[in-house]
Amino acid sequence: MKIAISINSLDMDDKMDMRFGRAKKFMIYDTETKTNELIDNTQNLNAAQGAGIQSAQNVINTGADAVITGHTGPKAYKLLSESGVKIYHSEEKPVKDVIADFIAGTLKEADSADVEGHWV
């Protein structure tokens, strides 16, 4: 299973990025092979609007099955969920702990967007 995590750096000890739309990068982590891949998301940093949509598009097109981030806005949520990508909201933790939580099944699946647009 492939999961996308919003991150600040590929360092597993570094904390994840809580933002989804304006995350600079995503880590695509493969839970079977335990390998990861970096996806650049910087095209969104200066977007006046729609950053969440473009992040969602990026993530969906990597073929990820799930996303772990801090918060998602309504449009990103809609696009991800309609494309069959599961969304998990985590507390701000080091990336390795976030992955461990996911594998242990302790992360709860988000059942709605938790922020208004513009935050993300």
């Binding site: 006046a48 609007q49 949509i53 097109n61 696009l79």
Partner: peptide
């Protein structure tokens, strides 16, 4: 310019 369109799974949204 306004990021209104996403392309997912080979279709526009």
């Amino acid at each position: 310019e306004f990021n209104c369109i996403a392309i997912v799974k080979k279709r526009a949204v």
